[in-house]
């Protein structure tokens, strides 16, 4: 079930290049059913569309959720200027996340790229609580863009790749994956479409779940702005990223 509420900004800080971490307080956290769901934020009343941002962490005790976002345009630039104490109009939690209740893995691999990293953190915490061993591979453009490495290290082993080699391994997350063969049985990935495509190809022999990014319209499943094709033979031929996803089992949709 989704709600709409004004959530108070409890903290808001720059954690990497153009990347901000924000903690929001309200009733929303108690409605989150899975890691990988998102909130749909109205940054300014004069905007015409909300901005979907994935949930990076949930704390039911304090009634807070954590989000991370990267300043990429006018909306996110305006969001970066919001002070602590102000309220944001938040709709959520949206979509279906990672179905951890059906995962039978004993060893999980998380593969995140750029601003696709955040939802994997809440997922990793939940997997670890279930006693599942967590290994993480994170990819960023360069050293200044790296975030959450220490947070993931608390969950298990972490490998970092940067495109220019200024931190960790030089190259892409897919360059690290072959060395992890046999060390996991299910993988979970979130990042740009091109990365998800490469990851699902490299890990073709494993069960996996992918979280997909797209420009959303309504964010509730009514407007058909964010569809992704599903394989032939499927009755519908498509999935709505905001409603059926954003997380899909590999092979459920065509990347």
């Amino acid at each position: 079930m989704m709600i709409r509420e004004d959530m108070e900004i409890l903290s808001h800080e720059l954690v990497a290049e153009k990347t901000y971490q924000m903690t929001l307080k309200g009733d929303m956290p108690s409605y989150v059913k899975q890691p990988g769901q998102f909130v749909h934020i109205m940054i300014d009343p004069s905007d015409s569309l909300r901005r979907p941002i994935s949930i990076a962490d949930v704390d039911l005790t304090s009634g807070t959720l954590t989000i991370l976002y990267k300043v990429l345009g006018k909306g996110t630039a305006s969001m970066a200027g919001k002070p602590v104490g102000e309220y944001l109009d938040v709709l959520g939690p949206g979509g279906n996340g990672f179905p951890i209740e059906e995962v039978s893995a004993s060893r999980a691999l998380l593969v995140g790229g750029g601003i696709g990293v955040p939802p994997l953190y809440y997922l990793g915490k939940q997997l670890k609580e279930k006693g599942i061993e967590v290994t993480t591979v994170l990819g960023f453009q360069h050293a200044g863009a790296v975030f959450f490495e220490d947070e993931f290290r608390e969950l298990g082993e972490v490998f970092v790749a940067t495109n220019d080699g200024s931190y960790g391994n030089k190259g892409f997350v897919t360059d690290i994956l072959p060395s992890l063969e046999g060390k996991f049985d299910t993988y979970f990935s979130c990042g740009p479409a091109v990365m998800l495509k490469a990851v699902s190809k490299t890990l073709g022999n494993y069960d996996g779940y992918l979280s997909i990014e797209e420009r959303l319209g309504c964010g509730v499943g009514a407007c058909f702005a964010c569809v992704v094709p599903a394989p032939d033979g499927d009755a519908k031929g498509y999935r709505k990223i905001c409603r059926d996803g954003p997380v899909f089992r590999t092979g459920e949709v065509i990347l």
Binding site: L49, R215, G217, C223, F224, A225, V227
Partner: peptide
């Protein structure tokens, strides 16, 4: 059945938005 147009199908504009869903319907 119509699948409609490829994505992106929406973009925000000043005081409005553009959409090109392409009549997707079953």
């Amino acid at each position: 059945t119509r699948y409609g147009n490829p994505t992106p199908r929406v973009a925000e504009t000043s005081s409005g938005m553009l959409n090109a869903i392409g009549l997707q319907n079953p």
